Simulated scan of single mutants.
Amino acid sequence: MNSILLASAVLLGSISTALAAEIPSALPAAVAPVVVGPAPKAPAPKLVEPHLHIARSSVAGHARIALTFDACMGQADDRILSTLVRERIPATIFVTARWLRRNPAAIAVFLQNPDLFELENHGENHIPAVDTPTLIYGIASAGSPQAVRQEVEGGAAAMAAAGIPAPHWFRGSTAK
């Protein structure tokens, strides 16, 4: 599927307006750039409803973006999920065991759309998978090799228990 996907709003922290602003200049002249709206003027960042702009192309070699989302602890954002399903936009979702327990309806949507969603491991409790005791962004790391193993294996076990195929990838919290 050849498509160009840009976002003008924060989508679970996965796409920034800065990235979206850079992409149109990198596209070939034959591809019409997608206009991305201005960022909010508020002093503090706000979560806003996503505005997805899609331009499909059958020409090979055009720039594409892979969407990935971290499903950490909170509730699924039905606005984002329904947009991805309605527009048939594929995405990789990194899920934690904590998130899986809170979002059975979203899991059902993912499992009903295996052509759209690749579910991967984001850990058991969303703690940094670092084997030495330290604070990362104020979050205590796993702290030992055994605790890192539990974070990774606990996330994978929760996925299997939810009926999700075994993950191929792990993305730890805090990107450390």
Rank of each mutant, 00 (worst) to 15 (best):
M1R: 15
N2R: 10
S3V: 12
I4V: 05
I4S: 08
A7H: 09
V10D: 13
L11Q: 00
I15G: 04
S16R: 02
A18I: 03
I23M: 06
I23R: 10
L27E: 02
A29T: 12
A30L: 13
V31K: 06
P33E: 06
P33F: 09
V35H: 13
V36E: 14
G37R: 15
G37Y: 13
A39G: 14
A39M: 13
K41N: 15
K41A: 13
A42L: 12
P43V: 13
A44I: 09
E49A: 08
E49H: 03
E49M: 12
H53D: 12
H53K: 07
H53Q: 12
A55W: 07
A55V: 12
S58P: 07
S58D: 15
V59C: 11
V59H: 14
H62M: 11
A63R: 14
R64Y: 15
R64Q: 14
R64L: 14
I65T: 15
A66L: 09
L67M: 04
L67W: 03
L67A: 04
T68L: 01
F69M: 00
D70F: 01
C72F: 13
M73C: 05
A76G: 07
D77I: 08
D77Q: 11
D77P: 15
R79C: 10
T83F: 11
E87P: 06
I89G: 01
P90F: 03
A91G: 00
T92V: 04
F94I: 02
A97C: 11
W99H: 04
L100S: 02
R101C: 01
P104N: 03
P104I: 05
P104H: 08
I107S: 05
F110Q: 02
L111V: 05
L111T: 09
L111H: 07
Q112S: 05
E118P: 11
L119I: 08
L119K: 01
E120A: 01
E120L: 00
N121I: 03
N121D: 09
G123F: 10
E124D: 15
E124H: 06
N125Q: 09
I127R: 04
P128G: 01
A129R: 02
V130R: 15
P133D: 05
T134D: 15
T134F: 14
L135S: 12
G138W: 12
G138I: 03
G138P: 14
G138V: 11
S141H: 03
S141V: 01
A147W: 04
R149N: 15
A156Q: 08
A156S: 00
A157N: 00
A157R: 10
M159K: 07
A161L: 07
A166L: 06
A166E: 02
P167K: 00
W169K: 09
F170W: 09
F170E: 09
F170M: 03
G172V: 06
T174S: 06
K176D: 12
K176F: 12
